[in-house]
């Protein structure tokens, strides 16, 4: 099953991009973004990409260990990435905050702000979540 758009119901051909500015748990932004992405995928939209900026870079570190009965925010994003969605952590924001490739969960990547630029240009809609 192609989770990234084709072959499912909804408006065909709409590309959405999602940007997250805040870190996990402290703000609702990452949860809102996740729920939005899930709903968009369920409706058959293509997610052109998800971009983590500012403290948002903390959302996808495998170093987090939330209590068993809480959601695991990093693993949730990794599962979205496993569906073929391009998840990008801003390298400049990450370096500033001590986030490197080796601490990231799988199915996400570190890259430059050019990726955000391409999302803003190529996606039909950009939806931003933050504080």
């Amino acid at each position: 099953m192609d989770w990234n758009g084709r072959g499912r119901t909804g408006v065909q051909g709409m590309k959405l991009a999602v940007v997250v500015y805040e870190g996990p748990y402290n703000h609702e932004a990452s949860d809102s973004a996740y729920n939005f992405v899930q709903a968009a995928l369920a409706k058959g939209h293509e997610i052109r990409g998800i971009f983590f900026y500012h403290d948002g870079v903390y959302n996808v570190t495998k170093l987090m260990e939330p209590p068993q009965d809480d959601r695991h925010i990093a693993n949730r994003w990794s599962e979205i990435g496993a569906k073929g969605v391009d998840i990008v952590v801003c390298i400049a924001a990450a370096k500033r905050r001590g986030i490197k490739d080796e601490v990231l969960v799988s199915n996400v990547r570190i890259s430059g702000l050019g990726q955000l630029t391409m999302m803003a240009i190529e996606a039909d809609r950009v939806v931003t979540f933050g504080d």
Binding site: Y53, G114, T117, I121
Partner: peptide, 18 residues
């Protein structure tokens, strides 16, 4: 840091065709 890091985005994006 929003204004500062936001400025970094603008400078990068300026190099693209937008």
């Amino acid at each position: 840091i929003y204004v500062y890091e936001g400025l970094e985005v603008k400078l990068i994006m300026a190099a693209y065709d937008a």
